[in-house]
Amino acid sequence: MQQVTLGRTGITVNKNGFGALPIQRVSTEYAGMLLKKAYANGIRYFDTARSYTDSEEKIGLALSDVRKEIIIATKTPSTTVEGFWNDLETSLRLLKTDYIDVYQFHNPSFCPKPGDGTGLYEAMLEAKKQGKIRFIGITNHRLHVAEEAVRSGLYDTLQFPFCYLATEKDLALVNLCKQQNVGFISMKALSGGLITNSAAAYAWQAKFDHVLPIWGVQRECELDEFLSYQDNPPVMTEEFEQLMEKDRTELIGDFCRACGYCMPCPKGIEISQCARMAQLIRRSPSAGFLTEESQAMMMKIEECIGCGACKKKCPYGLDTPTLLKKNLADYKEILAGTKTI
């Protein structure tokens, strides 16, 4: 079982983190089963956030009896000191703990620092002084914010999207974390579902000995897949290399990563699904994307009012309204039978 140490934190865990965003979509009982099974099979790092509705509560209910044996990372999206403390106290209560191992600023548009006028970093320091958090982290989807955070020396960990579609700049950021002894937590290792071969993704992540991938888990079959790799880790093969090169050719560029920061849409459009339907429908079994429910979801794009809010909020600078229109046109052609999948 491969282990990874998160930089200067000294936290050493199985190189298989549990991403708890998806468990907000399942029942408390089912989530509890997943969490307990993950723990029973050696997973010790559990990532959640105040923004993930009842994810924290589910972790608290399922794992409070083994609290001292696990690492809990959660996040605050707050931009005010008052909100920071409210979020922290709420997280502690729901997680049934008196401390958070890694407390992170959740995708801020800037890098919080002492003296910046927000008081946010000072609040982090005070929380650490009080023993309510052990290490200070930050998550982001913006490369310049992530780089600034790593170079600042203020952060113990960085959580950032990282998969085999990574650019040279992304790879440079990962190497910078190693140089600065900052723990690197890899999110979106399957690129929001666009990468469909988990074994190839796992083998690629294994090349980076200081990187901890967190896998979003919603179904037991998904958990079983990743657990099976612990004792029989996939190795990089020529077949995997060819697959990754094909994926890079098809996906690198202006595609939606499904980070969700463009949401909610004032017209109720499911942007993070609709703006990447062209890729999803071609890379996964298509039947699930051609149901009446999926068709209704896609047709909501016709109600777009062109407000541009999604475009302004996209951390990747995508022209989201244009992406939505292109995906809808493609989808209609598939439904009409004038374009093949």
Score class of each variant (00 low, 15 high):
Leu120Arg: 14
Thr139Leu: 04
Gly153Ser: 11
Pro77Gln: 14
Lys132Arg: 10
Asp87His: 10
Gln159Lys: 06
Pro112Asn: 11
Met124Lys: 11
Asp101Phe: 01
Asp170Ala: 09
Val150Ile: 13
Lys113Asp: 13
His106Tyr: 14
Glu69Cys: 08
Ile71Ser: 02
Phe135Asp: 00
Lys68Leu: 03
Leu95Asp: 10
Lys75Thr: 12
Leu95Lys: 11
Val145Ser: 10
Thr79Trp: 14
Ser109Thr: 12
Glu69Met: 08
Thr118Tyr: 12
Tyr121Arg: 01
Pro161Tyr: 14
Arg151Ala: 11
Ala146Ser: 12
Asp98Pro: 05
Val81Thr: 14
Ala146Phe: 08
Asn107Ala: 14
Thr157Ala: 03
Arg142Ile: 15
Thr80Glu: 08
Thr79Gly: 15
Asn86Phe: 05
Gln104Pro: 03
Tyr103Leu: 03
Lys68Met: 07
Asp101His: 12
His141Gly: 02
Lys75Asn: 11
Glu89Asn: 15
Lys169Leu: 04
Ala123Leu: 06
Lys129Gln: 14
Asn107Ser: 15
Gly115Ile: 00
Ser109Asn: 07
Asn140Ser: 15
Glu148Pro: 07
Ser152Tyr: 14
Pro114Gln: 11
Ser91Trp: 07
Ile100Lys: 01
Phe162Thr: 05
Val145Ile: 15
His144Val: 08
Val145Tyr: 10
Gly115Ala: 02
Asp101Cys: 08
Thr76Trp: 09
Phe160Glu: 06
Ala149Met: 01
Ala149Asp: 05
Pro112Ala: 08
Gly119Trp: 04
Glu82Gln: 13
Arg142Trp: 05
Ala73Tyr: 08
Ser78Leu: 08
Leu94Pro: 00
Asn140His: 08
Ala123Ser: 13
Ala73Leu: 10
Lys96Met: 02
Phe135Ser: 01
Glu126Thr: 08
